[in-house]
């Protein structure tokens, strides 16, 4: 599993969130729910920027030190594009229980459904 990783090209993302439905329906039988997805798309409607974010590590507490990032000339707070399952944010935690969600590349060998469904080339599985 450590031989591959997902490469995100946010410039190709169209903000359609198909990855969110594909992820959740692969991890939960007969269910579609973006709130249970381990990939979420941060959509900045103002700047028309779309950032797919894949669930990473679980953190018990919000960061004490934060920074801002500038992307294509616009400043974003770090939390917007952070991949942690963190109490500060709704993403990557099961609604209700708060259980952390983490990307597992859809098993071993890796077969990430978000990459499969992405029709615009924003997500790709690459060998390291």
């Amino acid at each position: 599993m450590d031989k591959v990783r997902i490469k995100i090209d946010h410039n190709k993302c169209t903000g359609c969130r198909h990855c969110e439905t594909a992820c959740s329906s692969n991890h939960y039988e007969n269910m579609v729910n973006p709130a249970l997805s381990r990939i979420r798309v941060y959509i900045d409607e103002e700047a028309n920027q779309f950032f797919p974010v894949i669930a990473g590590p679980f953190t018990e507490a919000e960061c004490t030190c934060k920074y801002d990032v500038i992307i294509d000339g616009k400043e974003y707070d770090e939390c917007s594009v952070c991949r942690a399952s963190c109490p500060r944010r709704t993403w990557f935690r099961e609604p209700g229980t708060g259980v952390a969600l983490k990307c597992d590349l859809c098993g071993d060998p890796a077969d990430p459904h978000c990459v499969q469904i992405c029709n615009h080339g924003a997500l790709a599985l690459v060998e390291i």
Binding site: S25, N30, M31, V32, N33, A35, T90, I117, N119
Partner: peptide, 26 residues
């Protein structure tokens, strides 16, 4: 705002249908 999810009758058959539909669209 909603986080409850939508249940599918047959997730496997549905995924097959999605794939078929996308292949056609593509």
């Amino acid at each position: 705002r909603g986080t409850k999810g939508i249940r599918l009758a047959d997730g496997k058959a549905f995924n097959t249908a999605i794939k078929s539909a996308m292949d056609k669209l593509n």
